[in-house]
Design a protein around this nucleic acid. Structure first.
Length: 784
DNA sequence: CAGTGAGCGAGCTTCCGCTTGACTT
């Protein structure tokens, strides 16, 4: 046994460090936090000054046991968890659990995993910083209180289903999406006319080329735009003035978790969870540095490495040393920026991770490369018939610099229709006469802010200081899993726009159509998300405030710096918060999310859109009416807030009876799992392209035949009377009786077709007597 | 996997942040 035990958080890190430290040191990982608050009674003794009650989660018992054993056997334990609030707390929990004295136990930190950095760290151990630990405890306890007091309020006050949740991070994430959706719904597009003139002039080779010049202003009406074109009839054009300005572009900082997620989304179309999964693979195989970081810092060794790679690949003049600063210098910088471990590897062999790795490599290289140098030319063009002038601008790249390797992508949010690339202009001289090919006034509409993508939501959350690199991806998953938010596409709608063209002194007018409002893989709030957000906003405005996290982070910092006592800080938060909880439980009405749509023309009964137990629906008539109300489930793309009376009435065309197939009626409807056809007491899901409102009988019949065939295909054997089936599943053959499945013992898997009734019964009895061990998380205490 | 939508009440759910490994009914 080695004399020293070093504990770090990540096992991949442990391996590398052990090699560096040599045989006197054994390096182990604790896999993140090893203790958490108990679930019962929130795990907090609020009366007793918020005293936390910690427990070791089941899936950490093994690690803790192992570390305890090793700690006993070694002379000295070194705590080398990350240098941030959470890392400090992990070290403290290790002290508590391993029986180490925090007054003497050595605490070390390193910012890069290199021999000199680690050896230096070992020479400069410090002690635990209890202020920092207390700041973490305050953070943990506050989050538990918010989550475990707000969620039950929702269970009581929402008339929809259960397992709703609320929390400091997730509820604000949903709020962002809800508010963006409403902005879009209430947005009024305003049109204006943009004038573009196309001229020809000779280039250096004497060839005629066409370039574009912008009109003096955007015209608010078609009349104004036409008047302008009218004034240009018979005009002569000449260059009035030329300005040449140098410009430059600089590369973006190397990747953090959030910028990596954004770029992988923009350039590779990856979801944030896919990006993180692939990054994890690259990290574990030693290809990149740690992937959960908010630091843009690069270590000195990395900087040398990058410089080498740039000089070798592109030459000295492409290198420029840069130091990037983090925006919020509150410094939870436990790690470096995300970069390749070895810059000499410009790619990896693995096909899954190849694209992501190359993106990281390019971004890292570019971040230490020279600026791109531009030359921007602006030419003003005189119109002989009026006082206005046109502007032509062109941009020429003089030196490509970092653009040789990498250009950061843009979100829709940052794009505008003026954003088209400036091309190059032909050489022009002042007073030079120009030939007008044509001039166009095109109608353009203002656009609302675009819906969030997963990645642009992460960007926004990061700007607000909400969430951490390790939680961005899980948060996005949670709000979708809870049914507050959906990721989907939206079809655009056709819109007419007008174009007026001046050509050969004649004006012509045409109307064209464009597609507008189409979205791909965007986040939409559900009705549930909107209703829950409105409720939380109404009763818990302070927690839902976009500045809430920033405010309490400031207080956590004060605790960390010893300027505030953590219990007092929590008490200041809790007293008014808990009052709001009690007040809401007592006074708030149960929320139904009802919206009146009008009255039914036939019966005169009221029509409402509202949340039912199973989701949004339309109801005609009231529950207390003599005749039962009629119900129709809304489509997943519709929303209570925006559905029209016409759209609502359309829904009552289901269920449709399509007629008889094999003497039985075929009914089409939409159920819990989407559109289906029912026939002879069996159900058949409609194919994606089938519309339940228009689908015909002859499209359904093959569906029925197909499903029967698939079932025969899966069946190996049936014992009719006992209701025992031997079936083929994705993991091989298994036995099914009633609704339960039973695993076939290994030795019989290959001869599953030969299993007799007696053998099958024996297997079932055996499995029932020795139920397979359940894995730790789904520990349901359901009585069988 | 399924066709529901009243009201009651049992029994259940839930947070954020740190880390990976499960291994199929």
């Amino acid at each position: 046994m080695a004399k020293n035990l070093v504990i770090v958080e990540s096992p991949a890190k442990a391996k590398t460090i052990e090699k560096i430290l040599g045989k006197d040191f054994e390096v182990r990982s604790c896999f993140g936090h090893i203790r958490d608050l108990e679930k019962d009674d929130m795990g907090i003794d609020i009366q007793n000054n918020f005293k936390p009650k910690y427990t070791i989660p089941e899936d950490k018992e093994k690690v803790v046991k192992e570390l305890k054993k090793l700690a006993k056997e070694t002379d000295e334990v070194w705590l080398a968890t990350d240098e941030d609030r959470e890392g400090e707390a992990i070290s403290w929990h290790l002290c508590e659990v391993l029986g180490l004295d925090p007054e003497v136990t050595k605490r070390i930190v390193f910012h890069e995993i290199t021999k000199p950095a680690i050896e230096k760290a070992v020479q400069q151990p410090r002690l635990l910083d209890m202020n920092l630990v207390n700041a973490q405890q305050a953070r943990r306890i506050l989050d538990r209180i918010v989550g475990f007091e707000l969620s039950p309020v929702l269970w009581r006050k929402m008339s929809m289903r259960n397992s709703l949740s609320a929390g400091r991070v997730q509820s604000v994430a949903v709020r962002l999406i809800v508010e963006r959706e409403r902005e879009i719904n209430t947005f009024n597009a305003v049109s204006s006319f943009r004038v573009e003139a196309f001229f020809t002039a000779k280039d250096l080779q004497g060839k005629n080329i066409t370039f574009k010049a912008e009109g003096p202003t955007r015209f608010k009406t078609a009349e104004d735009a036409e008047k302008f074109l009218q004034q240009c009839v018979g005009a002569a054009y000449s260059v009035k003035d030329i300005q040449v300005k140098p410009g430059k572009k600089s590369p973006a900082a190397p990747f953090t978790t959030s910028t990596l997620q954004q770029e992988a989304s923009r350039k590779l179309g990856y979801s944030v969870s896919k990006t993180m999964l692939l990054a994890q693979k690259l990290y574990e195989s030693g290809k990149i540095t740690y992937m959960r970081t908010d630091s843009v810092n690069l270590s000195d060794t990395a900087l040398g490495d990058i410089q080498n790679a740039i000089v070798t690949n592109y030459g000295q003049k492409y290198h420029q040393h840069r130091k990037f600063k983090n925006k919020n210098e509150s410094a939870q910088e436990a790690h470096e920026a995300i970069r390749p471990t070895y810059m000499e590897n410009a790619s990896v062999d693995d096909s899954d991770t190849k694209k992501l790795y190359e993106l990281i490599w390019k971004r890292t290289i570019a971040s230490q490369m020279s600026d791109a140098e531009l030359e921007k030319t602006i030419a003003k063009i005189d119109i002989s018939t009026n006082h206005d002038e046109l502007t032509a601008s062109g941009e020429v790249l003089k030196f490509d610099g970092f653009l040789k390797v990498y250009m950061e992508g843009k979100d829709d949010e940052e794009l505008s229709d003026e954003d088209e690339d400036d091309g190059s202009l032909p050489p022009l001289a002042v007073k030079q006469a120009l030939d007008l090919k044509e001039m166009k006034a095109t109608e353009r509409f203002s656009r609302p802010a675009p819906r969030y993508t997963e990645a642009s939501l992460v960007k926004k959350l990061e700007e607000l200081g909400i969430g951490r690199p390790s939680t961005y991806a899980p948060t996005i998953t949670t709000v979708q899993k809870r049914g507050y938010v959906e990721k989907r596409d939206k079809e655009g709608i056709k819109r007419d726009f007008r174009i007026m063209t001046l050509k050969a002194d004649k004006i012509t007018k045409v109307t064209d159509t464009e597609n507008t409002g189409a979205e791909k893989s965007k986040l939409f709030p559900t009705d549930l998300g909107m209703i829950v957000t409105d409720f939380l906003n109404q009763y818990f405005g302070s927690v839902m405030d976009y500045g809430f996290t920033a405010k309490i982070e400031g207080e956590f910092d004060e605790v960390a710096h010893g300027k505030k006592i953590w219990n007092n800080m929590l008490n200041e938060f809790y007293t008014p918060f808990h009052k709001d909880v009690e007040n809401t439980l007592e006074k708030a009405e149960r929320v139904k999310g009802e919206r009146q749509l009008g009255t039914d023309a036939e019966s005169g009964k009221p029509i409402v859109a509202r949340m039912g137990r199973y989701g949004p629906m339309i109801q005609i008539g009231k529950a207390e009416d003599e005749e039962k109300p009629k119900f129709a489930k809304m489509k997943s793309t519709q929303s209570i807030e925006t559905i029209t009376l016409e759209e609502a009435m359309e829904l009552f065309k289901l269920p449709r009876n399509l007629g008889k197939f094999e003497d039985e009626d075929v009914l089409v409807n939409i159920g819990r799992f989407g559109p289906y056809a029912a026939h002879d007491k069996k159900f058949y899901s409609l194919k994606k392209e089938m519309d339940p409102y228009t689908v015909e009988l002859d499209e359904i019949a093959p569906l029925i035949v197909e499903k029967r065939a698939a079932k025969d295909e899966r069946t190996i054997k049936i014992f009719e009377k006992e209701k025992i089936q031997i079936l083929k599943g994705p993991y091989g053959p298994y036995i099914k009786q009633g609704l339960r499945n039973y695993k076939i013992p290994k030795e019989k898997i290959d001869t599953a077709a030969d299993i007799t009734l007696e053998e099958a019964k024996a297997i079932i009895e055996d499995v029932k007597a020795n139920p397979p061990k359940k894995k730790a998380p789904p520990r349901k205490k359901k009585a069988e």
